[in-house]
């Protein structure tokens, strides 16, 4: 497929841009980056909670994508393929960091059953009446207050849409641990959102 003139790139589909990029058209690849850079950065930022690291990892993901572009066969959408690359980079980075860091209080509480005792079941939607922009910000804030282990499971399940088995494989934990972490994380999110809403209304 011949690459178009530069001014055609903004109106091209992702599939077309990928094909042209596979042929070496860096302008097409630049357009793909421009189109999806915020999503890829956001995914890295949610995982890492550190802007510099997220920026670096998101850029590394784009470079890796360029190098492996020939492997992209279009089985999934281009953004799905890209988010998998950045998530894998984040997981690798977190593994490296974990070697020199102790587990968080969150995880200790989970192990000792603290969550079961402390957290009530969510019986109403804590976000009723919130604007979507505000809601997204609160969800980000709540994710930031969770431990890395719980946040990772939430991101892989809710945003990446991975099944328990796949999460277990990627993170290197058992399926039972995936289930308990996800359960804990959801309750924690619900509680944090209730708290945020309460603070807001006061």
């Amino acid at each position: 497929m011949p690459a178009p003139l530069k001014y055609d790139y903004p109106s091209a589909s992702d599939e077309e841009l990928v094909k042209w990029s596979q042929c070496g058209a860096t302008e097409a690849f630049e357009q793909l980056i421009f189109r999806h850079r915020d999503k890829i950065f956001a995914r890295a930022m949610i995982m890492m909670r550190n802007e510099d690291q997220a920026l670096e990892l998101s850029q590394e993901a784009w470079v890796k994508a360029w190098q492996r572009l020939v492997q992209f066969q279009g089985d999934s959408s281009y953004t799905t393929w890209m988010t998998r690359i950045v998530i894998n980079l984040c997981l690798d980075q977190l593994r490296r960091q974990k070697r020199v860091r102790v587990e968080s209080i969150d995880e200790l509480e989970e192990e000792s059953g603290g969550v079961e005792r402390l957290m009530p079941i969510i019986d109403s939607n804590p976000t009723v009446g919130m604007e979507q922009v505000e809601l997204r910000r609160h969800i980000d804030e709540a994710l930031g207050q969770m431990s890395e282990a719980h946040r990772t499971v939430v991101v892989l399940h809710e945003f990446e849409g991975l099944e328990y088995k796949e999460i277990a494989k990627r993170v290197g934990i058992s399926m039972g641990t995936v289930m308990s972490r996800l359960f804990y994380a959801r309750r924690r999110l619900a509680t944090l959102l209730v708290g945020i809403k309460r603070e807001r209304s006061e």
Partner: peptide, 21 residues
């Protein structure tokens, strides 16, 4: 119902963050 709500809430409201450059 509670689990379904929180799952849907998070899934459909992924934080919308922008590249800071």
């Amino acid at each position: 119902e509670g689990l379904r709500q929180i799952s849907l809430l998070v899934r459909t409201n992924e934080p919308d963050l922008k590249v800071p450059s």
